[in-house]
Design a protein around this nucleic acid. Structure first.
Lengths: 360, 360
DNA sequence: TTGTAAGCGTTATCAT
DNA sequence: ATGATAACGCTTACAA
């Protein structure tokens, strides 16, 4: 039996001298091929454990790849496969809720081999457009978007759809757009907050809401109205205050409410940030919660527990929502079922705390 | 004068019929070239306003490019130029301070044509390693890192350096690493917090610190010690409590402090989150701030203003630090000056609030 | 002024 | 079992 001389190993040891020089840049398949005096296609096959590759060759290739710390060039692969394994995320801000959702998305995405690219629109429609363009230019494989409070037209969404790029909307979704959505049952959130305040004996509930066109805000208001109607309470249009989605505006709005002649005895703020703004105003007026006035927020941010009084708030399961969103996205990428009608709706849960708990 | 027939325009109108089909995928230079029956290189030149291109050709190319919504393929460019115009950011979490810093980085980066890719290490060294690898695989042009509280060895940093990839450390920096850094003067932060507490008449100051190996924490402690020495106060090792960088641990640590026989009359927490944990414990003990006990936090998060009592805190200029970090990064990319010794140090500023203000 | 061809790093197809 | 070649989209010498 003639001893088979391992040609490769022989040349290998010689080529190792170039190691230092080669490693200055990223090692490529070509480097390995040249060092081993074989073709790039063979190296490629060996690396991917293709069946039709000689045992010795495979070993030699893998050993050298290891030694040279070879990493496949993602750019080249992406160019070839026409996919970047990147998800573009556009969100209005990075507050507690959205940061938590992004963590959820990232966790699932990473598991599935995707990398996320997060852009903040800063609640500006213009920046949302710009970010869409940036991410489109970056050739992301798909989008996960929560629209800004300013967003009234959906050109960017349509542009994404016209290019047949997968898109999932979450949290702040748009209804008249045919894509999968992950959201909270905001109407129900409005219901439980309002019902709770009524249960605690409050009679005149004001709502500090977001901008007029903002879906999540309007849905929560809708739930609020429903419960008023159920309880035969005549709704008062003036008790719904729309303001920018930010603490300072809520503060101003609340001051006006408390100064007005028809002062409410409870406030339902459709986010914790707005609730905090309201709380500051309430304290300035010297009113006590829950005795003089009741307050319920939304999101169940950790700080609601820490404030004095602790603020009652509606939990929205941010982390789980993030994970669910990413899962649908991955499903979209991997199956060709039509998911455009899919809508996952999370159920809100009220955490009752001092700000509205009269013990009734 | 023979009338020059615009050959291009003639074929153009005919080719437009394919428009719909072409637009299903991204338009390429090749599409334009074929439609216009010219070569891709000419199209490339026309698009980039190269000097040696015929006027008519240029116009025709640009018109068609516009019509077909041509966007250069970033992948191809990146592969060619060996740069992705992407910055990899690794941070321990996305709390208020870091989210703010990231906004600062993003703002400057975007301006300079860079896109950021943000990875959270979740305060885990393991995830920091994984994220480094991910971003390295993604061929980011450089890194901006704030290390996790768990990070004790710096293999990943060394790996980045060995590949000669630009790196800037910010906020939680490592000292014995030769790269540009942007940080707060934490020693000074420790000084002003401690001096303020002494000025307010507190005698026994305890420090709720982060993990023992955490630089920012240790520097703040250092400042604390300095001021004690200046004031001829004998430092007490037992008054420095190290705990995980998280509210719950601070709560537990504070409970122990208050239960112990040598109860402090003031607490300097080296982050607002820790301060909040401390505050909850203090309240549970029925102690009043600032009368019975003083409390100072660090970061000047907006909530410090909203808590009752409002917490005194040291401002660290997060947004500006983010911007400065990105600026150095960009400078590194564009100049070949050696910036490895560069260190930008921001000065902290104390905001005095109820939790420690005895009006002295 | 325009076209040809090579190359960036990889894989797939087709030969051998 | 291995190699040559083309292709992904783009730029850039070099030729014409």
């Amino acid at each position: 039996m003639p001893e088979r001389v391992p040609v490769i190993s022989a040349t290998l040891s010689k080529s190792i001298h170039n190691l230092a020089r080669i490693m200055e840049r990223q090692t490529t398949i070509k480097d390995i091929a040249q060092a081993l005096r074989i073709s790039t296609s063979t190296v490629s096959r060996a690396l991917r454990d293709a069946p039709d590759v000689g045992e010795e060759t495979r070993k030699a290739v893998k050993a050298l790849a290891e030694e040279l710390d070879y990493q496949p060039n993602k750019l080249a692969l992406s160019l070839l496969n026409k996919q970047t394994n990147t998800i573009g995320i556009i969100i209005p801000n990075l507050d507690y809720v959205l940061a938590t959702m992004v963590r959820g998305i990232d966790e699932v995405a990473l598991e599935a081999g995707y990398t996320v690219m997060v852009c903040q629109s800063d609640e500006s429609f213009g920046r949302e457009m710009v970010n869409t363009k940036r991410l489109l230019d970056s050739l992301v494989d798909g989008f996960i978007i929560s629209v800004s409070s300013e967003t009234r037209v959906f050109e960017h969404i349509k542009k994404i759809q016209s290019k047949k790029i997968p898109l999932v909307l979450f949290d702040r979704v748009i209804d008249n757009v045919n894509v999968p959505k992950v959201k909270l049952d905001n109407v129900e959130g409005g219901r439980i907050a309002t019902q709770h305040l009524l249960d605690q004996g409050y009679k005149k509930i004001a709502v500090i809401a977001g901008p007029e066109n903002m879906n999540v805000s309007n849905e929560r208001i809708e739930g609020h109205y429903e419960v008023l109607k159920q309880n035969k309470i005549k709704p008062d249009k003036n008790a719904i205050i729309h303001c920018e989605f930010n603490q300072d505006y809520a503060y101003i709005a609340t001051k006006e409410l408390l100064t007005g002649k028809n002062r409410p005895d409870a406030i339902f703020a459709i986010s914790d940030r707005l609730a905090i703004g309201a709380m500051i105003a309430i304290k300035e007026f010297g009113l006590k919660m829950p005795k003089d006035i009741g307050l319920v927020g939304f999101n169940n941010e950790p700080i609601t527990k820490l404030l004095t009084p602790a603020i009652s708030s509606v939990e929205m399961h941010a982390f789980e929502m993030g994970k669910a969103t990413a899962k649908i996205f991955i499903e979209m990428m991997h199956s060709d079922a039509d998911l455009s009608e899919k809508e996952i709706v999370f159920k809100p849960k009220l955490f009752i705390r001092e700000s509205s708990n009269r013990g009734l």
